[in-house]
Simulated scan of single mutants.
Amino acid sequence: MEKLNLTQIETLLKNLDGWIYENGSISKSYVFKDFKETFSVMTRIAFEAEQQNHHPLWENVYNQLTIKLNTHDVGGITQNDFDLAKRIENIVNKK
């Protein structure tokens, strides 16, 4: 895994609506209808994360979900983070 530089990160972020780079992670916050919908999406993301062996840092409060991704092994952002972010977007958009 290769750690991406800021230029690479900014370029890849252009393909992810609403995702930002801050504090060494790419992140996005979502708001759902209620806790049940939020937890359902989180469960689908959890299965995908486990399949990729790449797990998000996330915070859930009722219908709000914030997801942060980085690759601890390299101390920064890698293509793996963007791959998981794209899968998360697909999951959220299919809810």
Rank of each mutant, 00 (worst) to 15 (best):
H54I: 14
I91S: 00
N63P: 00
E59D: 07
M1D: 09
G24D: 14
N5C: 07
V31F: 04
M42D: 00
H54C: 13
H55F: 10
L16T: 01
G18Q: 12
V31N: 08
R44K: 08
D17M: 03
V31A: 11
L16C: 02
E59V: 12
N80T: 09
K33H: 02
G18H: 06
F35Q: 04
E22C: 06
L57D: 13
S27D: 12
D17F: 06
H72E: 11
G24W: 12
D17Y: 09
K95N: 02
V74D: 05
A46P: 02
N90M: 01
T66Q: 13
K86E: 09
I20F: 09
V31E: 05
N60E: 03
K14T: 14
E2A: 07
S29T: 13
D73G: 14
F47K: 11
I26P: 10
D83G: 04
D73R: 15
T11Q: 13
D34V: 07
E48R: 10
D17R: 09
F32W: 07
K36D: 07
R87I: 05
K14F: 03
M42N: 02
I77M: 07
N15Y: 10
L4G: 07
K68Y: 11
N90C: 02
R44Q: 08
L13G: 12
K94M: 08
L84I: 02
Y62D: 04
W19T: 08
N60W: 05
E10A: 10
T43C: 04
L12D: 03
D81I: 02
K14L: 11
N63C: 03
Q8E: 15
I91A: 01
V74K: 14
N80F: 00
I91V: 00
N23I: 10
L13F: 02
L4F: 12
K86W: 01
L69V: 06
Q64A: 03
N23D: 10
K86A: 03
L6D: 13
E2V: 12
E89P: 06
H55Q: 03
L4S: 08
I77H: 05
M1Q: 13
Q79D: 02
K33F: 09
R87T: 01
W19K: 12
Q51K: 15
L57G: 06
F47L: 08
T43V: 13
P56V: 08
T78L: 02
K36T: 14
K95Y: 11
I45E: 00
D73H: 13
Q64D: 00
N70Y: 15
I91L: 01
W58Y: 09
I67Y: 05
S25W: 03
R44I: 02
V31S: 11
N70C: 14
K94Y: 00
N80W: 01
S29P: 04
N63R: 15
Q64R: 14
L65F: 10
E2K: 14
T66E: 12
K14D: 08
E59L: 12
P56W: 07
D17P: 13
E22M: 11
Q79G: 00
I45D: 01
N70K: 15
D73W: 14
L6H: 15
V41M: 06
H54G: 07
E37G: 05
N23C: 14
G75Q: 15
T38F: 05
